[in-house]
Amino acid sequence: MEREMIGRIIQGDREAFRHLYDEYFDYAMRTAIVVTKHAEWAKDAVQETFLRVYRNMWQYDQGKPFKPWFYCILLRECYRIMEREKKVVPLSEQLERIGVEPELPDANVDIYEALQSMNDMYRIPLILKYLHDYSEKEIADMLELNVNTLKSRLHKGREKMRSSLGGEPYGSKA
């Protein structure tokens, strides 16, 4: 089904692209918000991602899964926008600015803040692995990394999360 839809998009079928957009938009927005840490930047990144996908669909290798190709473009757009803006707005300031109290339990907010406070080198692989359920190979391809480098970043990222949430290092005796 996805290959048929992509073939129709390549041939210029706007309705097929609209279907793709509807299918991927929410997932892309959630990812972009977590990556950029800013809702407006996320909107820009997602909009530009869909434009690039539409313009460059002919470059997509239909022998490979579509989703990693799409998210590779999305991540690059997020990085480009973050580089352009060169600032990070903490979660508490974002929530304060829009006047929203989080409805999540404190544990979820703590996890979110711990994740958002991490360096992108560790944060992005953790997001792709544990929030989007990509394989290590797919993540390594998306981020243009060696699989062993990715595994190391995932391990260090998990350790940083554990530490920031007050957990004990792996293997320590209580």
Rank of each mutant, 00 (worst) to 15 (best):
V53P: 08
Y24M: 11
P125W: 00
F17H: 10
H38N: 14
I6A: 10
P90D: 13
E48C: 07
D13L: 08
K67G: 07
E2D: 12
P90L: 14
V35S: 00
M161S: 02
Q94V: 12
K129T: 07
Y134D: 03
D110P: 03
Y170K: 14
V46A: 07
E96R: 15
E15P: 05
Y79L: 12
D61L: 02
I9N: 10
S164Y: 05
E96P: 09
D141I: 07
I124E: 04
M5P: 07
L95W: 09
K173L: 15
L75D: 11
D22R: 11
D133C: 13
K151N: 04
L128Q: 02
R3W: 09
R8K: 14
E2A: 09
N56L: 04
Y21W: 15
E136P: 00
R153G: 00
A107H: 05
G167P: 02
M118Q: 06
R123N: 00
P68Y: 06
Y122A: 02
K173A: 15
Y27I: 06
A114K: 09
I9R: 08
I111F: 09
R76M: 04
V89L: 15
Y54R: 13
A32P: 01
W41N: 05
P125Q: 00
M57K: 01
Y54T: 11
K37N: 10
E2T: 13
D106P: 12
R80C: 12
Y170S: 13
Y134I: 00
F17Q: 09
Y112P: 00
E93R: 15
D141W: 06
M142N: 02
R3G: 12
N108E: 14
F25I: 06
K156W: 06
Y79A: 12
D26L: 05
V109T: 06
K87A: 11
E96L: 15
L128C: 03
M1K: 06
L95F: 07
I127R: 05
E136M: 04
N148E: 12
M82W: 07
D61V: 02
Y60S: 03
V100L: 15
R153Y: 10
V88Q: 14
F66G: 00
R52I: 09
L51N: 12
S163I: 08
S164M: 11
D26W: 01
L91V: 15
Q62W: 01
R30S: 04
N56H: 07
D44H: 11
K160Y: 11
E103D: 08
M5Q: 14
I98P: 08
V46E: 04
P105K: 11
K86P: 00
L165C: 03
I98M: 10
Y134Q: 01
Q11M: 13
G12Y: 02
Y122P: 01
E83F: 13
V109Q: 06
F50G: 03
N146Y: 05
R162I: 11
I127K: 01
H132M: 12
L74K: 05
N146S: 08
D106R: 09
M57A: 07
A140E: 07
E23D: 05
E93G: 07
I6K: 09
S164N: 11
Q116D: 08
E48G: 06
G171Y: 08
G157L: 00
R97K: 15
H38A: 04
R8V: 06
E93K: 12
D13A: 09
I124A: 03
Y122G: 03
Q11L: 14
P125R: 01
S92G: 14
S172T: 14
L126C: 04
I6Y: 04
I111D: 01
